[in-house]
Design a protein around this nucleic acid. Sequence first.
DNA 1: AAAATACGATAGTTGAGACTAATTGATTAG
DNA 2: CTAATCAATTAGTCTCAACTATCGTATTTT
Lengths: 109, 109
Amino acid sequence: MIEPASITNVMRALADPTRRAVYERIVSSDEITVVELTRGSGVTQGAISQHLKSLKQAGLVAERPEGRNVYYRAEPEGLTPLVDWMSHYGVFWRERFTNLRTLLKEIDP
Amino acid sequence: MIEPASITNVMRALADPTRRAVYERIVSSDEITVVELTRGSGVTQGAISQHLKSLKQAGLVAERPEGRNVYYRAEPEGLTPLVDWMSHYGVFWRERFTNLRTLLKEIDP
DNA sequence: AAAATACGATAGTTGAGACTAATTGATTAG
DNA sequence: CTAATCAATTAGTCTCAACTATCGTATTTT
């Protein structure tokens, strides 16, 4: 059972552009190492490690050590607090349900 | 035409608990003044004004001056960057489409 | 065994932002 | 007119976070 991170943790984790870019790369790839994440990030490996720590604490990513590599992947339940929050306070969000409806059909025609 | 705020602006604006609480109160109420927002916020009026400035720059709220009062309301398009971002990177979010489907039926049975 | 690689952890620096207190400008009340 | 109220703004303080640089550890390679 995964400890549900607070909405503040998730929001804060994704607020930083660098850290959000790291998360986006993790989501886009199935699994990815720290070295690959560091490459082309513009910051040092230590910075990436710290960002990964934040993302992990926010419940957004999970790690899988293998030998001297550590593979990171996105945690499926990670964005749940964000979705829940928007379901509650994003009232006007319903204006955009047309798009969601399209997306739904795409998944479940 | 409303200037679309960046995802970073929106995320950063909502990341702070105090500022997010202000936004939530604005969403919950139709219109609300600075005095009312200050009451029970735990911070000074100046702090509230600064938070409102951030929320306004993020495109999340709008103001309507009337006499010596300024009424704030939520901006409908404000959360659009957040929805767009989640549509793109929140792949696993689709796990929760069951709930969204329920919500859809509630709106458009 | 020695060297190289991949990560993690920590100390220290810097800059940003959240806040208070105080001032100012504008509007309303007495 | 004068006093009071509402909101924005500024200056100044303080905390926190993002980052670099560095060291330490485990694993792999030669």
